[in-house]
Write a protein that binds this DNA or RNA. Structure first.
Lengths: 306, 306
DNA sequence: CGATCTTACGGGATTCGTAAACATA
DNA sequence: TATGTTTACGAATCCCGTAAGATCG
């Protein structure tokens, strides 16, 4: 038994896109010579292409003499399908190549509000300049929802503070930031040579919500019950407004300093307390590779860590 | 210059239907081994097929490890086009093969009413038994309209009495028939040893319309002004009714004898007068070959001439 | 006889299947 | 380690382009 002989095709005869192109070109130009030229083939090679198609189809598709080339009735039947078929195929390939070359695509990213407002915009500006056709979706939510979005496939990537190395999710260290005291300009805490946790206790304090990573780390460094909690708010922008109004002081992550540094009447001071720093992780699914578009954003993020 | 090197594809990369089939099978089965088996290929050959497709597409379409095969995002993009594309291609080929094997198709035939009523039905019964899927269109009209229909592409074939050998049309001799006297049974013309044209003159005569071939040939043999014309009618069936009612007698072509031979009270007698016979031609276009279906009918007609 | 399609043919690329190497759970 | 994909490789096949042949107007 000759085991190396190719087996017969399982369902249909093999048709190549080049045969389809040749057919459509010949049906349009009605000349082997001209159609061969359009397909960048020698005329005999082109002829063989058509013959192969006719053989695969099981019917003569063109009537030809040396002076005349025309579709047979069967050829007309096939033409009605072949022309749109070829167009669809080429569109499908073009669409695919668009995705591969980042002329089209979609990336969805979930990350902490502080990064979304401060660091991300400049990054996305560059990304959009390079790949204007790629659709972007950003979810500026806290760590837990960030991770949930990746887990549920709603986001390709997330930046969050939770190290989730599960069978589903892969987390890699991305960046870290320190925390900063924010208070009205000229506040006496700004002058102390060494600022300790207990130094904050006498002052009215604007807390962030308990589920925020900032709050949780701060609670670990300074027992909350000992503090003079003035209020709890959700947004860092609100913290900024409260402190600027002189209602109290607060502690915010470095990535959100852009909220405060540009505000007249406000001052900040880095807190170098042990344990009071945030580790950020880049989180993605384990079971899916990133799409080309997502990988491009991933690379750009890694190359431009805050 | 290496002139035998294949030139690059003109527009799109070459994709074969086998690659499309392989892609769809792999997307469905998510296993190279099983998909290769379904495509009747060795697994490495199948793998190469997919790799070739990915190369042509310019993007990786599957994420694969030894334990897991899944579509990439780009693969999903392509799948949306590929599956319907393959289905359409296979349907187009099936349709084409149906036409080639006469499971489908269409033939239109124009021929004289006498043939349409007498000879054709039995022929078409056989044709339909062999090719039940082929649509038939019959125009039972006189010679001139028969020819016109072929000339205008409304009919594939015609049987008519005019020899039209023009640059457009090809006519080949098909058959011929003689003319017959029809009269009430027991009429004295039936008894004469030799029946001559002038023997008809004393009797009331039922004429066919002037544009019919029967009438024109009869007028050439017997001057119409000398005849006792009772009336002119269009249809041979009307002639039959008139003669059966004893109103007169008439002359009809042999192919229409089936109208008369089975009628009680009627008799016929062949007229062997010089020039009084009809030559029938099979007419088709010169610039188009017959479709497979039309050719089948053509062969059947030739093999079963009246 | 001139334009055009088909056949013939040699060389190189392609693709097959078997076997071995490689990778991951 | 076991299952499943990729690489390696020799052989058969396919496909190209050139050249010669056939055919119709």
């Amino acid at each position: 038994m000759n085991s190396s002989a190719p087996l017969t095709a399982p369902i249909s005869a093999a048709i190549s896109s080049r045969q389809l192109q040749a057919f459509v070109a010949l049906a349009r130009l009605r000349s082997f010579t001209r159609a061969a030229a359009e397909c960048h083939l020698s005329q005999p090679a082109f002829s063989a292409l058509i013959q192969g198609l006719e053989q695969a189809a099981g019917a003569r598709l063109f009537e030809r003499s040396t002076r005349h080339v025309a579709l047979t009735v069967e050829g007309e039947v096939f033409e009605r399908s072949a022309a749109p078929l070829l167009a669809q195929l080429q569109q499908a390939l073009a669409e695919l190549r668009d995705h591969a070359t980042l002329r089209r695509g979609k990336v969805s990213l979930a990350l902490l509000p502080s990064l979304a407002a401060g660091w991300l915009p400049g990054l996305l500006q560059r990304f959009r300049a390079d790949y204007p056709g790629v659709e972007l979706q950003v979810a500026d939510v806290l760590s837990e929802p960030c991770v949930a979005r990746v887990r549920e496939g709603q986001a390709d990537l997330a930046i969050a503070t939770v190290r989730v190395d599960t069978p589903e999710l892969r987390a890699e260290p991305f960046s870290s930031d320190r925390f900063h005291l924010v208070c009205p300009a000229g506040h006496d805490l700004l002058e102390r040579p060494r600022l300790m946790p207990r130094d904050l206790l006498p002052h009215p304090f604007i807390h962030l919500a308990r589920h925020s990573s900032v709050r949780q780390l701060l609670d670990a460094a300074v027992h909350p019950l000992q503090m003079r909690t003035l209020m709890e708010v959700e947004q860092l922008a609100t913290v900024m407004g409260m402190v600027r109004a002189g209602l109290g002081l607060s502690v915010v992550p470095g990535f959100s300093l852009f909220h405060f540094n540009t505000q007249p009447g406000l001052a900040t001071r880095e807190l170098r307390w042990k344990g009071l720093h945030r580790q950020l992780f880049l989180i993605r699914r384990r079971d899916r590779e990133l799409s080309t578009a997502a990988r491009a954003l991933y690379e750009l993020m890694l190359a431009n860590r805050p």
